[in-house]
Amino acid sequence: MSLLEIDNLSVDYRVGTGSLRAVDHVSLRIEAGEALGVVGESGCGKTSLGLSVPMLLPGNATISSGSIKLADHELVGMNEAQLNRLRWTAVAFVFQGAMNALNPVQRVDRQILEAISAHDSHAAKEESSQRVLELLDLVGIAPARAKSYPHEFSGGMRQRAMIAMALACRPSLLIADEPTTALDVISQAQILALLSSLRRSEDLSVLMISHDLSAIKRVCDRIVVMYAGVVVETGTTEQVLGRRGESALAAHPYTQALIGAHPDLRGERVLAPGLAGHPPDLSKPITGCRFADRCPSAMSVCREIVPPTVTISEGHTASCHLLKKVGA
């Protein structure tokens, strides 16, 4: 049994009079202690996927099919009270940027304490306060700064505080949505290092969502590449990105484009040639491969038939017509 099992998950958004499928029959698994990275451009359904686990999708979104099992609890269809018991204790969240994810009018220690007492009403006050300081220490924030307000922290410190808060109830799964976006390069490196050391010391499973392959590479064991709401490639980090010093092994043209899009100098993300344009409009029906319009190697079959999922090697799959041709 895996810690998190997502099967055939679809998320629909009501938009105006129509609807839009942001996540389309996605399945993935995270084993205990594993770190999985979901990568893709913005608007590919990564964030919707992440938010659907603790059932925090916005009001105009519905889960139209599939199941989400966390430690054998089925989350889809659970009522709010049951969900509230699992939120933060089983699955905690580190939000994008952290710019505004902390309440601006509450002291940081108070916000962490609140998470602890919300789930353990019997916790002794001194013990919990002690725990807050330990947590802050764990992420490298001195106890003297515990009583600060979020605006008194730098972006990097806010994100550390957010991570400390996420660990407050010893969750088994941590979902980190773009944890390093909007941070400066040094803070990015520190946060990534912190995440990869914490996942071992705190025995965490991680679902990390990012558009930045280099960030994912530094934390995650496995990668899922999403495009326009579907999984196009999945494999271990080494299978998809290659070992250090080797060229990438990515099988799907989209993954290849993403790799090309980010030169290893961690500068501005530059789009590779051939990856011009935007992901398709999901409110309109698409036949065939969703990436076809932007794919440098698109064939006529790509626009007609949905590509099959091909196993390249143990644990490494991709959905592309090219692969079938090569394989046949």
């Binding site: 509230n84 940027g97 309440n103 998470a115 919300a118």
Partner: peptide, 16 residues
């Protein structure tokens, strides 16, 4: 605001 999402994610009661 983002911090409202955080508050929900923390499993706080609606009233809180």
């Amino acid at each position: 605001e983002d911090y409202m999402l955080t508050a929900r994610a923390k499993g706080l009661q609606r009233r809180t």
